[in-house]
Design a protein around this nucleic acid. Structure first.
Lengths: 228, 228
DNA sequence: CGTGGCCTTGATAAAGTTCAAGAGCCGTGG
DNA sequence: CCACGGCTCTTGAACTTTATCAAGGCCACG
């Protein structure tokens, strides 16, 4: 059984009473994972879902020849692996830790009982599922309707990784992983960052990117403009 | 207010008591839509969601220069537009009728109240959202990790449009729309159907495709094999 | 100080799109 | 009943974008 305090920090459990939090705590199991461990594999049978206390996790798909497409990055307070609890019973994608993690595990059966008793927990869960749906719809849009420069521009503008709302963006993932999130490969990402720099849209540093021309990036992300 | 009978045929409302169905019926509003009408546009504010009684609807995204990516085809008994009820308040994609349709509309506020009172309705809704998530994850996988022949092969194998479990597949959508679902254009689709035919994987007819070599199609869909 | 991971750069190749044109099909209206 | 116009679908050739392959630089960590 996990501590109430940790449970309360998971936004899935926002707006619940102390009593409800206690119930949830009573079914949660705390786990420790090391960096780069596989939490579950696509196709594995699901016995429940997870929520991150600390650390970060990527959700991804692999092609037979090893190319990776990242679907989500998950951080503290975020649940993952929920979809398989409610439909299908096996995970539609894989999950791997990016750092050492403390993770709560919620067994399926007990959680489903809880949800049946707690309408606001249900609504929170539906909100999470719906937000995931939106993220994936946008990913599909990017992959199908935009070229790599447009996807990258959208990421730079809207990833929300900006240092205190300035135009400075802190890259907390490797460019390798960013390429995999954007549906491309490191070589291509490198070249396009270079071209954006040359066009004075951004200024690239090692793990930091400065946005110089938001308007230009917007036009790029909407396909109204191309790199030279 | 709509008839109970129509409500009961929507799988979202499976396993509910007659009394619950009556409650749902009391908030549902029946609408008639003609072919090719826009039910909602990406970005529109959401006041509720929809469920199809008869006809079919596509959910899609458009690029600024007019290319379309279809996310889902929806048929009788299926709800759509739910995600915006639970998160975001505006639709993440657009919806258009493909045929004349009878559609039920459920106003957001009343529906959220219903859901709070009906645990099994919540669970059904979560199952639907989770299934959508799975579909989109697979779409992302296709777009990013497979080439067009692989995506087409997967569609032919798993679309479920087979005539009584035979190897004959009835194309109920235009090839134009199929291309848009697969994330490509009609020209490319046409060429690849041709190549598959030449390789004796399928036999193409006007609105009918016969699968000649399931194993070959599987290998194609998994990237273990290429067209000649 | 050396080694391995990450990142960059260049040359080449593959896949898919674009543009242009034409064939087949269907419903409408004369 | 036929002719017309408008679709959808097909085919070909040129072009664009991105991936692949190969190599080298840089940095951090042991």
């Amino acid at each position: 059984m996990a501590q109430i305090k940790k449970i309360a920090e998971i936004s899935l459990f926002a707006d619940l009473t102390l009593k409800q939090l206690e119930e949830i705590a009573s079914i949660a199991i705390e786990q420790k994972w090391k960096r780069r461990q596989l939490v579950f594999n696509e196709g594995d049978e699901s016995n429940g879902f997870y929520a991150i206390i600390s650390g970060s996790v990527k959700i991804f798909k692999l092609s037979p020849d090893g190319k990776e497409q990242i679907l989500h990055f998950m951080g503290p307070g975020e649940p993952f692996g929920e979809a398989a609890v409610f439909a299908g019973e096996h995970f539609p994608a894989s999950a791997q830790t990016l750092t050492d993690c403390r993770i709560l595990f919620f067994p399926r059966r007990a959680f489903v009982e809880l949800i049946a008793k707690n309408p606001s927990l249900s609504l929170n869960m539906m909100a999470f599922l719906s937000r995931r749906l939106r993220v994936l719809a946008n990913l599909v849009e990017g992959l199908s309707l935009k070229e790599v420069p447009g996807r990258l521009a959208a990421y730079l503008l809207y990833s929300g990784k900006h240092r205190n709302n300035s135009d400075i963006l802190e890259l907390d993932i490797s460019k390798n992983q960013l390429a995999s999130l954007l549906g491309t490969i490191p070589e291509t990402l490198s070249r396009i960052l270079n071209r954006m720099d040359r066009d004075n849209l951004i200024k690239t540093g090692a793990h930091r990117i400065q946005l110089l021309d938001r308007q230009g990036l917007i036009e790029l992300s909407e396909g109204r403009k191309k790199l030279s």
